[in-house]
């Protein structure tokens, strides 16, 4: 083989590697369709890696104020990592997260603990405190952060427990509850301080379809009543169709597309179409 030919082959190989690298993000238009409202939370070019495992790779995303937003994406794309960045449980390696105009990574501990009072978070399994019964779990934020008397605290707690259908379970310990009940109790605790922003980390995981639908209805009802920016992380397209007002599709640590739900469901992006239709044919495979 001549030297020219070998060099040409090398050049082709290099070009194909470069193309492959470009191809990785070829569906990521990063398009952020306008919502007409301000963003409560913004991710600005956020990078995050755990060891060599790069999770967020230049994430730019906005979560609009006063809407139910969903972050959708395949497993392992960094959805839960996003939530942890919003509340300062994780810090980005690069980039910024802005909540109501303030940079989270730049906050001191005291500011951070103060800022977190704006948030209610429903963790995957409810994250109830195992040493407290349900009443004390839901009352915990009120006792910690308000000067309310015990009678008023109990009144609020009972109202919140009633909203999530746990009126008679107040004296039960978390290990006596089913997964669905733990989630609902976690939801009641997340709402008890009337937060401006509520984050739901896969509220549908481990629930049957009927209970998932009921939980979605509950999210919608409480949002209508209280308002605020709600962020739901899920893989469940049915849930997205039911409650989402804004959708961000996340893949490989970046936004593929985001915007109002009805526009995303009609997107012409092949990846977004495949994912939102739950189709096996398309850019997303098993890899």
């Amino acid at each position: 083989m001549s030297e020219d030919k070998m060099q040409a082959d090398d050049a082709t190989r290099v070009a194909s590697v470069v193309d492959d690298r470009d191809d990785e993000f070829k569906w990521h238009t990063g398009k952020q369709l306008p919502t007409g409202v301000q963003d409560a939370i913004e991710f600005v070019d956020v990078h995050k890696a755990f060891g060599r495992n790069k999770i967020l790779r230049g994430l730019n995303m906005g979560i609009p104020e006063d809407k139910i937003s969903m972050i959708l994406g395949p497993s392992g794309t960094g959805k839960s990592v996003c939530i942890k960045h919003m509340v300062g449980l994780l810090y980005p390696d690069q980039g910024d997260i802005i909540v109501h105009g303030k940079s989270v990574p730049m906050m001191h501990d005291d500011e951070l603990f103060d800022m977190r009072k704006k948030f209610g978070v429903l963790f995957q399994d409810g994250a109830l405190f195992g040493s407290m019964n349900l009443l004390d779990n839901v009352a915990f934020p009120l006792r910690q952060h308000t000067d309310k008397g015990e009678e008023e605290v109990m009144e609020i707690v009972n109202r919140r427990l009633a909203e999530v259908g746990l009126t008679n379970a107040g004296d039960k310990m978390p290990n006596e509850l089913s997964g669905g009940m733990r989630k609902r109790a976690g939801f009641a605790r997340a709402l008890v301080l009337d937060p401006d922003i509520v984050l739901f980390d896969e509220p549908d995981s481990g629930l049957d379809p009927v209970r998932t639908a009921l939980l979605c209805e509950l999210i919608q009802e409480i949002h209508e009543e209280n308002g605020g920016a709600y962020v739901v992380i899920t893989h469940d397209i049915m849930s997205a169709r039911r409650v989402a007002e804004h959708i961000s599709v996340l893949w490989k640590g970046r936004i593929v597309e985001s915007g109002p739900a009805e526009q995303l469901f009609n997107s012409d992006n092949a990846f977004v179409r495949q994912f939102l239709a739950g189709d096996s044919q398309g850019p997303l495979g098993m890899e």
Binding site: K84, V87, L89, D109, F113, D114, R116, K117, F119, V121, F123, Q124, D125, A127, L128, F129, G130, F140, P141, Q144, H145
Partner: peptide, 18 residues
């Protein structure tokens, strides 16, 4: 460790408790 795995420690922090 059990509290960490059950995300109780994260929940505490999010509830503004150090």
């Amino acid at each position: 460790g059990a509290r960490k795995i059950r995300e109780e420690l994260d929940a505490l922090q999010v509830l503004g408790v150090d």
